[in-house]
Amino acid sequence: MARFTEKQYRNQLSLAMVAYMAAMLLVWPLSRTAASVPLKVLLAVVPVLPMLFVIGLMARRIGASDELEQRVHLLALGAATALLGALSLVGGFLDAAGVLALRGSILIWVFPVTMISYGAVRWWLVRHYGGSAGCEGGSPGWQLCLLAVLVLMVLGVGWWHGRLDAFEKGLLFGLAPGVLILLVVSLWRRLRRVADKD
């Protein structure tokens, strides 16, 4: 069976993230005004679908990895889970003691925090084993461009329909510099690789 390459993973991940952004900005806001409870539930969980796809992608990526890559993935996921568990304990005890007043919506951060911690630990482990955390066989530059264009299109449509509230507008202005920084870093790495080859 052909290996599930890093490039395939990143391509599918980019599409899933665009679908997530579209669901968050165009579908999820409708859940606030939906009349019936079943429709409200359905609209509220729509953004979860692309995330379930991402979890499936990760499982496929880990399953198709060789033994060292699997070791790195599983160590990173273990460390991320431990960190999340520790943070949840601290937050839970502080909330129970009345020091913090945490809302249920904080659970939205569980998955992003896990993924960010996983990414950071994986980056460290890959460097430890003498590898590069970047994808093999190509630069993700064009994918970032595609992602940026699609995200901006989604946001543009959302804006046009007048569905963006203050939070979503803030997200738009927050995302733009983030994507720009990623593009600059990607371009810089690409130029450095070209310079190293010469």
């Binding site: 060292l68 430890h128 084993y129």
Partner: peptide
């Protein structure tokens, strides 16, 4: 049927294979 990085890690002694 492994990644190039795994070969590199084995050669440099950073990883002992199964």
């Amino acid at each position: 049927d492994v990644s190039r990085q795994t070969v590199n890690a084995i050669e440099t002694g950073k990883y002992d294979p199964s």
